[in-house]
Simulated assay, not measured.
Amino acid sequence: MTSATPPKRYAVIGNPVEHSRSPFIHEQFGRQTGLALRYDKIKAPLDGFAGAVADFFAQGGHGLNVTVPFKEEAFALAQAHLSERARLAGAVNTLWMEQGRLHGCNTDGVGLLHDLRRLSHAPAGKNILLVGAGGAARGVAFPLLDAGCARLHIVNRTAQRAQQLRQQVAGHMPRLAASLSAGSLAEAGGPWDIVINATSSSLGQTPPDLPAGLYGPGALAYDMVYAPRPTPFMEQARRQGARQTADGLGMLVGQAAASFAIWHGVSPDMEPVLHALRQQLLYT
């Protein structure tokens, strides 16, 4: 009698990573599609990301989701084999081995666009404020412009980083450069149709230092962080006049589904997993 083939191993890697719901999501996708898999959490040292990635794949791992603060380091590791989405973003959230070579993609933008459409706030024709200029912002700036937003304004605590991201995006998409601008948090302007918090500020329980007057009629405030209750950014947005607020749980499920499709060649059904995850968050 032969033993059953052990499940393939996947994981999310970050620091912090304890809060991650990715294992639940991928296990649900696996059950849905009949695929046996094991999905773990890996907390990599802040100065030891490359080593942790190498160890994971050396021990037979098949795929990694990358979260804060390592998306730009993941981009550098997979530099020789990047998808177009990753190359444009300058950040990677999905890693896998193919013929002994490390490959990288960025599925954040796919996840965000899917969730904005689910919330009836498709980006086409909208004026959008993107708060933050790190790996998360890099992953969604190109997709938002490509989806046809009328204007994308990037702001960051350090204005220079926002300008650098603007220059990077404009360099790759010169035809859309006129729709793109950048500045400091104090230069957020407004009113906006959609305001997206791409910083990790809500993990620290403090909203970004944004001025009033950001939200236009019917505006959506979207926090890429998710939580069982409204995040500090969402609460701030409500006080400042946002009509609708949402956290990033739908984006998380959307980007996970895109990663799952890369690794397994099959697209799972996101809606039941999103519903189950929301219920799980409410009662934990």
Results as ranks from 00 to 15, higher is better:
198 A>K: 11
65 N>E: 12
262 I>Y: 10
181 S>E: 07
92 V>D: 12
48 G>S: 08
3 S>C: 00
89 A>Q: 05
279 Q>C: 13
24 F>S: 09
59 Q>P: 06
135 G>A: 10
208 P>R: 04
36 A>G: 12
90 G>F: 11
170 A>D: 09
114 H>W: 05
229 R>E: 12
213 G>H: 07
93 N>Y: 13
256 A>M: 04
66 V>A: 01
190 G>K: 04
183 G>Y: 05
184 S>Q: 06
83 S>K: 11
86 A>S: 06
177 A>N: 08
93 N>C: 00
114 H>E: 11
66 V>Y: 07
44 A>C: 14
218 G>R: 06
265 G>A: 02
282 L>I: 15
207 P>A: 01
280 Q>H: 02
221 A>N: 03
45 P>M: 13
7 P>N: 05
240 Q>P: 10
86 A>D: 10
58 A>E: 09
196 I>Q: 05
97 M>F: 09
76 A>K: 02
110 V>N: 05
271 E>G: 12
102 L>H: 00
102 L>K: 03
25 I>D: 05
118 R>T: 15
134 G>N: 13
159 A>R: 02
18 E>P: 12
77 L>P: 06
80 A>F: 05
123 P>T: 09
222 Y>G: 10
255 Q>C: 03
190 G>Y: 01
118 R>E: 14
114 H>I: 07
140 V>A: 11
237 A>H: 00
188 A>G: 11
244 Q>I: 06
164 Q>R: 08
20 S>F: 00
269 D>E: 15
201 S>L: 08
100 G>F: 01
271 E>C: 04
125 G>T: 12
172 H>E: 15
108 D>K: 01
251 M>D: 14
202 S>A: 08
134 G>M: 08
90 G>I: 14
159 A>F: 13
224 M>D: 02
99 Q>K: 10
15 N>W: 03
22 S>G: 13
131 V>S: 02
26 H>E: 11
186 A>S: 09
149 C>F: 09
71 K>Y: 14
37 L>I: 09
34 G>P: 00
108 D>G: 09
272 P>H: 04
92 V>W: 01
237 A>N: 03
15 N>L: 07
92 V>H: 01
237 A>E: 07
101 R>Q: 08
27 E>N: 15
227 A>K: 07
279 Q>P: 05
237 A>D: 00
224 M>P: 07
66 V>H: 14
145 L>V: 08
258 A>T: 10
254 G>K: 03
99 Q>E: 06
30 G>Y: 04
257 A>D: 02
24 F>M: 04
112 L>R: 06
31 R>L: 09
269 D>A: 13
43 K>V: 10
129 L>E: 10
265 G>W: 06
39 Y>I: 11
147 A>R: 14
92 V>C: 01
78 A>N: 02
59 Q>T: 07
207 P>I: 02
60 G>V: 08
235 E>W: 10
133 A>K: 00
44 A>P: 01
158 T>L: 10
106 N>E: 15
154 I>C: 01
132 G>T: 10
56 F>L: 14
124 A>M: 11
248 G>E: 05
142 F>E: 08
217 P>F: 08
211 P>H: 15
87 R>C: 12
36 A>L: 11
265 G>D: 00
217 P>V: 08
279 Q>A: 02
173 M>V: 11
173 M>Y: 13
52 A>V: 09
133 A>I: 02
117 R>C: 04
200 S>T: 09
69 P>Q: 12
94 T>W: 13
159 A>N: 07
284 T>F: 15
154 I>L: 03
201 S>P: 03
121 H>F: 11
19 H>R: 07
155 V>I: 13
164 Q>T: 15
